[in-house]
Structure formats: structure tokens, C-alpha cells
């Protein structure tokens, strides 16, 4: 894995897994992707933000699942044929992201990667790390830590705080 990564950098290319949400194409760094699985049943966890779909069983491990549509304020839809869960490893933890359709793995040259626009996307730009031009499409590369980390980490911190207050 590490080797591959080094190689990828050396060729000045970046590899992304692209997926669809509504009509928009998003990408995540392929090295953060653990696996892609078909949509499966999740168990909702009470008192969590609505974008947290719940938890699921990934071969014996319980991992949280985020509904990307809800996170990005898109209307929630029933799972379709192509609905998939992309399992992503953030800081050693696995998190599942529900996406409409997984597209492909693309190589993007460095010169085709640009900083995110100030506006224009239907998504809060703080979640977008880069824009990548690929053929005639523009792929929005997501910043996973900002996407899931920030809000959740503060949630965890708050909970810890309330707990220590109680104790």
C-alpha cells in the first residue's frame, strides 16, 4: 500500500474513486477506501444527527454509516440498484458512506487538480479539498476529515465533557 502510494506520487498522478450523488461526481482518495459493498440494512442509533444513518455489521465489526445525501442536504431516496456503501478509513476508523452509484477509479494528473471554487457547488465548499478535471467532467475531491471528522469529533468531545461533568 505504502509502496503504491509512493509510486503514485512519483508519477505525479492521483488516484480517486469517483461516485455519484444526484448528478454530481465526487471523488475520494483511493488510498482511503477500504472496500465497496452493496447497500445493506443499518440499525439507526438514537440521538445522533440525521445524516448518521446508523450502524452496520462489517464482518463482525460495527461501523457507523453516513448517508451522504442527507449530509449534503439532498433529498433522501430509497436504496436503488446501484446504491452502495463505500467503506473509508479515517484515522484508523472505518466509516461507511452511502452513495448513489460508484463510478470508477481515475488517475488525475497534478496539473488537472485545482483548488475548490468559492461557490457553485451545491455542497458546502469546506468539505471539498480539490477539483479535478477528468475528461469532460469535474470531480469534487472530498476532504474526509472535514466531512466526518470535525462535527463528529466535537460531538464526541461534548459527550465526554458532559460525562466528566456528571462524574
Amino acid at each position: 500500500m505504502e509502496e503504491k502510494k509512493a509510486k503514485g506520487v512519483g508519477l505525479a498522478t492521483n488516484r480517486f474513486l469517483t461516485f455519484y450523488l444526484e448528478e454530481e461526481v465526487y471523488g475520494v482518495n483511493i488510498f482511503d477506501v477500504k472496500e465497496i459493498i452493496a447497500m445493506m440494512k443499518t440499525t439507526p442509533v438514537p440521538k445522533t444527527p440525521p445524516f448518521i444513518k446508523g450502524v452496520m455489521n462489517l464482518r463482525g465489526n460495527i461501523i457507523p454509516v453516513v448517508d451522504m445525501r442527507v449530509k449534503f442536504d439532498m433529498p433522501e431516496v430509497e436504496p436503488q440498484m446501484y446504491t452502495a456503501i463505500v467503506i473509508i478509513t479515517i484515522e484508523g476508523k472505518n466509516i461507511g458512506f452511502i452513495v448513489d452509484k460508484v463510478e470508477e477509479v481515475v488517475n488525475v494528473e497534478n496539473e488537472n487538480i485545482s483548488p475548490p471554487p468559492e461557490f457553485g457547488a451545491s455542497v458546502d465548499t469546506k468539505f471539498i479539498k480539490n477539483m479535478a478535471k477528468q475528461k469532460n467532467k469535474v470531480v469534487m475531491i472530498l476532504d474526509l476529515v472535514a466531512l466526518f471528522g470535525e462535527e463528529e469529533l466535537s460531538l464526541v468531545q461534548n459527550l465526554n465533557k458532559t460525562l466528566s461533568d456528571k462524574g
Binding site: 442509533v45 438514537p46 461501523i63 457507523p64 476508523k93 463528529e152 460531538l155 464526541v156
Partner: peptide, 10 residues
């Protein structure tokens, strides 16, 4: 349930 909601109330 993982660190993200290790301390969910209830």
C-alpha cells in the same frame, strides 16, 4: 459502536 459514538446516551 466505534469511537464516533462511543458515548451515545442510553
Amino acid at each position: 459502536l466505534g469511537e464516533f459514538f462511543a458515548q451515545t446516551e442510553g
